[in-house]
């Protein structure tokens, strides 16, 4: 199955990036993990972030999400420089992360999970009905029809359904950027399709989406832009249509591509 990109959101050079990083540096002690990363996340686009194990992908998104601070570099959101000191700051800006190891509570139902930590109503008298309605609306808005009841406990859901709940949770809060760390890593073929479809829908709704994936099939199916991280450097951010699979593999493994020359290895292809 191939998912067509929404026409109005087709990758163009127009449109200011939602999230823009320049010259990001991050070290853990003596280990220099991120060495001057530039990254742009544009609204309505799926930006795939690819790279070998240990390239620094998770470190990069944890910095964006405020879990740990970058050492150096500029962090712009909607054109303005911002400081993100913690997950709450990132959430406030409209940045949500769907973590690889799902952050869901098995013993709670779908609604409770989606609103966990941000319940509606007074804290001594929660508005369960309002939460249930909004959870339902959000899932419907994402055209999710695989959940019989939003009062099902998460323990009874399949891997794909869980991932769906985690993603729906991320878009519940008028988020502008959703970052997904390997959302399909543990899923079967059919469920992977479901989740990729959902990822595409997020972008079609105008959100900026960052998809970390090891699977180039997924990347080529759903992404608009591909950003390649190699040993802590962003060696390319290119439009999907401008590269071949072989070139991406080459970029991931060697950090450069002979065919593409050096012009694109310097950041965003503008």
């Amino acid at each position: 199955m191939s998912v067509p990109a929404a026409e109005e959101a087709a990758p163009t050079t127009s449109g200011q990036p939602l999230l823009s990083l320049r010259g990001i540096q991050k070290s853990f002690g003596a280990v220099h993990v991120l060495r001057g990363v530039d990254l742009d996340v544009r609204p309505g686009h799926v930006t795939a972030l690819v790279g070998d194990n240990g390239a620094g992908k998770s470190t990069l998104i944890k910095g964006i999400a405020g879990i740990h601070a970058f050492d150096e570099g500029e962090y712009h959101f909607e054109g303005k420089p911002v400081k993100v000191h913690g997950p709450r700051d990132a959430n406030q800006l409209g940045i949500e992360v769907v973590y690889q190891d799902l952050a869901l509570c098995d013993n709670l139902d779908v609604v409770d999970n989606m609103f966990l930590g941000r319940e509606l109503g007074r804290s001594v008298r929660l508005d369960d009905n309002a939460m249930e309605q909004r959870a339902r609306e959000t899932l419907d808005g994402l055209s999710v029809r695989t959940l019989k009841s939003v009062r099902t406990h998460v323990s009874a859901l399949s891997g794909g359904q869980r991932q769906t709940v985690a993603i729906a949770r991320a878009v519940l809060w008028n988020s502008k950027v959703v970052i997904l760390d390997e959302p399909t890593a543990a899923l079967g073929v059919a469920q992977t399709e479901q989740v990729l479809l959902l990822v595409r829908r997020l972008a079609d709704r105008g959100l900026g989406v960052v998809l970390i994936s090891h699977n180039l099939n997924d990347v080529f199916e759903v992404a608009d832009d591909i950003a390649v991280l190699y040993l802590g450097q962003l060696v390319a951010q290119v439009r999907k249509d401008d590269v071949t699979r072989g070139e991406v593999v080459e970029l991931i493994t060697t950090g450069s591509s002979e065919k593409r020359g050096t012009d694109t290895t310097n950041g965003v292809d503008r």
Binding site: R136, D140, R145, T146, L147, K148, S149, A156, L157, S158, G159, G160, Q161, T164, A190, Q191, Q194
Partner: peptide, 11 residues
């Protein structure tokens, strides 16, 4: 349970 099984929204 498969994620592709379509079920009515709210039985």
């Amino acid at each position: 349970m498969s994620a592709t099984t379509q079920a009515p929204p709210e039985e």
